[in-house]
Design a protein around this nucleic acid. Structure first.
Lengths: 231, 231
DNA sequence: CGAACAATTGATCCTCATCAAACCTTGTGG
DNA sequence: CCACAAGGTTTGATGAGGATCAATTGTTCG
């Protein structure tokens, strides 16, 4: 039992692929399921495979020598990850991928993608577009970290997550499933500070905070905090 | 009077180009010289051209709505910049490029590069490798900014600059030409803090600090500050 | 029910940013 | 050739913003 090749078109890089190519790719994919807290790969591992998440949720992170870690990005369904290793031979992963819940991914040999890209410009362009968006996002986040105050950074993180994986409830609120620690790693602060900020926002009626859960009641208010010129 | 096409091979992306391709590319390049403090392009501009710096020095930076800016990277000779815009049609530059001194660059239409990449995988791969290195560097810097103390970040910046554009003097010291403000923007701090840290290092004999100049006397000592596990 | 984990909240401390003032260095024009 | 202006740098004083530590209170699940 393998994946339906046509479903692969949901992957941004494969958007312009021919049906035949999708079938080819699907035939080279193997499924891999892991539990919450387990890892698809570690920073520094040989980048033999790249992955496409087909169910669950994962995070890409980097840690410093002392073991402190930062969250680079959260991966949701049909997103590709670990693909930077496909650009050159014998590359290593520049980050670690950990499952945030029980997750399943397709693993495909990096060598194979590299081979395909030799003759299929649309694939190279797809990957380059993806890489461009990473670069832009990292540049922005870097600037935010360097110049903005925590509260605003946390607001930005919530908004980013909203657009990437927020679940809209029927009354216009948005639900996010993350621990304070996760949010802290994503905004470059500590879980204590995240907790304080969320408590304050809850007092103001902007959000409802629960265990591993944030419900954004007034998205507009959060946007205002994220954007406002004068704090 | 145009550029010698063969010189273009110094550009990492063109490393594996055929001589004919280099000639083609050179024929599409126009030279553009600007003075210190002037700009090649601004963030948000239409990315009509990408550039190759052939003399001088420039910096890529990003600013937030309030006007504070951070330095993303310093560009030295034969480096390509503004090339992210070549990946998709009608893209805009995600950063601003300013000359740090009188500088000359080749400007080539982004459209043209994109066209070439359709039929020349080596070009796509060259650009992807470049983009991969940007992503990795930004990820590292992001982590540093989030988890490391200023002193160590400044040490890292000096080391990065050393490998990118440091001038070795005959006694093993390394000379860098940057203002305190430049260094501050690169390490995500203020010129005051940079000044204080450099003064302290000077007291310890690690560096000599002058106007728009830092002379690293004991590179090993700086490495130690950058790497040491226990501060 | 109890263990494990997540979150809150208060108290404290420390790193840096900020502001202000003076000092150097370099280049220019009278 | 000197004086002065402009820009870069240093240094001290001050304080704010968060990190850190510690203790307590939920929440979930076997």
């Amino acid at each position: 039992m393998t994946i339906d090749p046509m479903k692969l078109r949901q992957v941004s890089v494969f958007q312009n692929a021919t049906d035949d190519d999708l079938k080819l790719i699907a035939r080279h994919a193997i499924e891999r399921s892991i539990e919450e807290g387990e890892f698809f790969f570690f920073q520094g591992d040989n980048a033999v495979y790249f992955y496409i998440l087909i169910s669950g949720r994962a995070k890409l992170m980097q840690m410093n020598p002392a073991g402190q870690q930062v969250n680079l990005r959260t991966i949701s369904e049909w997103q590709m990850f670990g693909a930077l290793g496909a650009v050159r031979e014998n590359a290593t992963y520049p980050a670690t991928a950990e499952a945030l819940e029980h997750s399943t991914a397709l693993a495909i040999k990096s060598d194979y993608l590299r081979e395909l890209m030799q003759t299929r410009p649309y694939l190279s362009f797809g990957l380059m577009k993806l890489m461009t968006s990473y670069i832009q996002e990292m540049q922005e986040r870097y600037r935010e970290l360097a110049t903005e105050k925590v509260e605003r950074r946390i607001a930005r993180v919530l908004l980013r997550l909203t657009s990437q994986m927020g679940v809209k409830t029927k009354d216009g609120s948005i639900e996010l499933t993350f621990t304070r620690q996760d949010l802290a790693e994503m905004s470059g602060t500590t879980l204590y500070t995240v907790s304080r900020v969320l408590s304050e926002w809850e007092r103001q009626g902007l959000v409802e905070a629960g265990r591993e859960r944030v419900l954004i009641r007034k998205p507009h208010g959060v946007v205002q905090i994220a954007e406002e010129l004068n704090p």
